[in-house]
Simulated scan of single mutants.
Amino acid sequence: METKSSIIFVTGGVRSGKSSFAERLAIEYAENEKADLHYIATAVHSDTEMQERIARHQQRRKKQKVKWNSHEQAVNIGELAGVFSKKDVILLDCLTVLVNNELFYKDQRQEMLELKLKRELIELSRSCRYLILVSNEVTYEMSSDPFVQNYCRLLNQLHYFLVQHAKEAYLVEFGIAKSKKGGKK
C-alpha cells in the first residue's frame, strides 16, 4: 500500500463512544478538506435492538450541522468504491457488523472472506481522501463456541491488517480516544 494512507481506524468496546468520536473526526476532516461526508451503514434491521441502535445513530447524525450522504451496504462494500471522489471523507460503521453479515449471512469461507474484505477496504481507501473505519473489540473474553472463535479470529486479523495500513489508529474507552498510531495526542 502507498505510504500516504487514507485509513483511520477506530476501535473500542461496545458502546464505548467510538462511533461518536469517529463522526466528530470525520466532520473535522471534511471541514478542513472542504470535502463531502459519506456514511456507510453496515447494520441490518434484524431485530428490535438493532433497529433501536440504527435509529439512535441516525438521530445523532441528523442533529449535527453537516450533511451526511448515507449508503446502506450490509455486504460487498467494494461495490461502493466508484461512488466516491478522491476528496471525500467516508465513515464506515461498523466493520464488526460487516464481517458478521459477510460471514454468517452469506456463509463464506473465512480465508476467502479475509482476502475479499482486505481487498475491498483497500479499494475503498484509494477511492477517497479519508476512510474512517469503526470496529468493536470483541475478544477481551474468548468464547468456547467454535463459530464465535472463528469470527473473532477473522476480526482480529482484519484489525491487525488495518492498523498496519492506517495513517491513524485509535482505541476508545469510556468516551476517551487514545491515539495509538498517528493522530492527535
Rank of each mutant, 00 (worst) to 15 (best):
V172R: 03
V138R: 05
N150I: 03
S144R: 10
E173V: 07
E120D: 13
K4I: 15
I54Q: 15
A74D: 11
W68N: 10
S135P: 09
K116F: 01
E168W: 00
C94F: 03
K118E: 14
D93W: 00
L133T: 15
E168N: 03
E52K: 10
A74K: 05
A55Q: 07
V172K: 07
I40L: 10
A81M: 11
V163L: 04
L131R: 07
A35N: 02
Q58T: 15
E23I: 02
M50H: 07
S5G: 12
R15C: 08
F147D: 04
A74P: 03
A30S: 09
E111N: 03
E23F: 12
V99Y: 12
S46T: 11
G82S: 11
V97C: 12
E28F: 15
V10F: 03
H45M: 08
Q59S: 14
K180A: 01
E28V: 05
Q73L: 08
D88M: 02
A177K: 09
V163A: 13
N76F: 09
S127D: 06
E137F: 01
L171N: 11
L25M: 15
S19M: 04
G78K: 15
I77W: 05
R15L: 11
E52V: 02
L155N: 01
Q73M: 12
L155I: 07
V44C: 02
I77A: 02
E102A: 07
L133Y: 09
T11N: 02
L117C: 14
K63C: 04
C128N: 13
R153M: 06
R15Y: 12
A177H: 08
I40M: 08
E102Y: 02
P146D: 05
E23N: 07
H57R: 07
V75H: 11
V99F: 15
A26K: 00
E49N: 04
N101L: 06
R53T: 04
E2S: 12
F9L: 13
R109E: 12
K34G: 15
N100F: 09
A22E: 00
L98D: 05
L92H: 13
L25S: 06
V89R: 02
V83Q: 15
Q157K: 13
Q110D: 13
L98P: 00
F174M: 04
C128D: 03
F21V: 06
G82W: 07
T139V: 01
M1L: 08
K65C: 10
E31R: 11
T139P: 04
L115I: 09
F161N: 06
G175F: 14
K34A: 09
K116W: 07
S20L: 11
Y160P: 00
S70A: 15
H159Q: 11
Q108S: 08
N156C: 10
L158N: 06
S135Y: 14
L113I: 04
A41W: 00
A166C: 08
V44R: 10
N32H: 09
E28P: 00
L158T: 00
